[in-house]
Simulated scan of single mutants.
Amino acid sequence: MRTHLPYIFVFFSFLFVSFSTPFYAFQKNTDKFVVVLDAGHGGNDPGNVGNGFKEKEIALNIVLAVGKSLEKHPNIKVIYTRKTDVFIPLRDRAKIANNANADLFVSIHCNSHHSSAHGTETFVLGLHENQRNFEIAKKENEVIFLEDDYKSHYEGFDPNSPESFIGLTLMQEEYLDQSTQLARLIQDNFAKTLNRVDRGVKQAGFWVLHSTYMPSVLVETGFLTYKPEGVYLNSAKGQGEVSLSIYKGIMDYKMKLDRNIGQNVYNDYSNIDTVNETVDVEDVSNNTAEKLYPNTVFKIQLAASSNKIEPKSYNFKGLKNISMEKEGKIFRYFCGNTSDYNEIKKMAEAAKSKGYRDSFIVAYQNGKRVKLSDAVNSASN
């Protein structure tokens, strides 16, 4: 029975997430970039209290400061798992992010160790690289023992058993690249702006990260058990500087999305006749009149990338009706969806004016992509 434990855990984790999250959590919001900020611990869970400092208070102060900075941007929506000193179960933190249709989940904590270890480190979900990472995750996960009837909520998960962590990584696997990118940007701001010791981007099995449907990181802002660092993190100056670095990391990440749709973007001219192909259609008395092809759907292919980016308007310079298709390891991104050829030509001009100079019109018939010339000619016959 022991050898099957990881697989049983994966199965029940899937059921837990699927049935405890409302359906609308899977329907992405398209108007704002949503960031969920999670202050670790709270209420009857003080977190670590190295040198008498309280993790729950420091984490909350930093979260509120990060949120205040983000809220100055009208295209960003901030949601907090807690804004006061209350206890929030781990399972509810991820659920808050999913129900908010969030684009990022950032959980903020303070570290502890029996040595003089100090510095910042940011975690993404993954199997432990070493015993130290396991111990950090273990401490954060043990908060489930404070919850009533925790066994029924966590389906046999045991923070003390390395076997229990095997199934955690599956949920977040598709967001690992984006989570790692965000984590690295946060760490870079700590190191370059504040000259903090950079302990790196690491992987470990944090329950609070595993059930989220978006890029997610857990930031360990420093060690309260290292007194100079504890004094710094407990001060208004330290909390202000740390929150600014995390805020800049989030904004750096968003700026990369705004600039284009991710790394490794390239022009993809597969399945079209010629680059920037246009097709002459029969003259109509009014250039604005509809030229409909009832059995055909036209779209504008904007780009292709090896990175998965949420198909949202703000990620594509405000263009509307964004969609995504995956073929192999490549994601293709489109705007528009119409059977009116005149309308799609206007959309193509709008896309080029936004900077997508190599974008082009594509056509679909019965859900299958076809050459644009074939679609138009077949409709004309």
Rank of each mutant, 00 (worst) to 15 (best):
E327A: 12
F87D: 03
N271M: 12
A191E: 06
K299D: 03
A289K: 15
L194F: 08
G355Y: 05
N111W: 07
A59E: 01
F9W: 06
H210Y: 12
N48C: 14
I261D: 10
A303Y: 05
Y226I: 11
K345Y: 08
S306K: 14
A102K: 06
A375D: 09
N75Q: 11
G336M: 01
D158S: 11
S18Q: 06
L104P: 01
K248T: 14
H210N: 02
S285C: 13
V201Q: 07
F26K: 14
E277N: 15
D340E: 05
A348E: 08
K317T: 01
L15N: 05
F16A: 06
D374I: 12
P215A: 02
K56R: 14
G126W: 08
S305V: 00
N99A: 13
N315R: 09
L176V: 08
N377E: 10
R82W: 07
N189W: 02
D45G: 04
V281E: 04
M347R: 15
G222Q: 05
I246N: 00
I186Q: 00
F123M: 02
L90H: 11
T193E: 09
N337K: 13
F157G: 01
K254L: 07
E343F: 15
Y150T: 07
H128A: 10
E349W: 09
N44I: 14
L185P: 01
M255F: 11
Y150G: 07
K68F: 12
R196D: 08
H118Y: 11
A39E: 05
P6S: 04
A183F: 05
F145W: 10
G240L: 11
F11C: 13
C335F: 00
Y232W: 11
F190P: 00
I144W: 03
H73V: 03
P159G: 01
P228V: 13
S380Y: 13
S116L: 06
V279S: 10
F123W: 09
L176H: 15
L372K: 12
E71I: 01
R82C: 08
G222H: 06
P46K: 10
G328T: 09
Y7T: 04
L372R: 14
P159T: 02
L185I: 00
D283F: 15
Y341S: 00
Y80R: 12
L209T: 04
S313K: 11
A379M: 15
V279M: 04
L37Y: 12
